[in-house]
């Protein structure tokens, strides 16, 4: 298994260690997962799948918890929505 995986966060490539979650890839790039209802930037809180603050769009599927999904090569992640 290769040591690193490259994914795209809002079209920009990010390389993370194999096994890293999407949340890590986001924190290494934009550091923001979503925009809250009142317009605040939000990033992971619990990182365990409970709080849903780290929701992002992955491969065109919205509202996925980035802390619960492992990065896969070429994944397209959209953040800040």
């Amino acid at each position: 298994m290769p040591e690193n995986v490259t994914v795209y966060v809002n079209d920009l490539p990010v390389t993370v260690p194999t096994g890293a979650t999407v949340a890590v890839a986001v924190m290494l790039s934009s550091n923001v997962c979503r925009t809250s209802v009142s317009g605040e930037p939000r990033a992971p809180l619990c990182a365990m799948g409970a709080c849903f603050e780290c929701r992002v769009e992955i491969n065109e599927v919205r509202h996925l918890r980035s802390c619960q999904v492992a990065c896969e090569p070429q994944m397209k992640i959209k953040v800040g929505r």
Partner: peptide, 28 residues
């Protein structure tokens, strides 16, 4: 983890204790 609200707790990089460790374990 139990989180209690305080001013600023919604800022990015304010995280759970175990939660932050989990992110570091996961490659941060």
């Amino acid at each position: 983890e139990l989180f209690l609200p305080f001013p600023g707790w919604t800022l990015p990089n304010v995280m759970g204790a175990g939660g932050f460790q989990a992110l570091v374990k996961s490659g941060l």
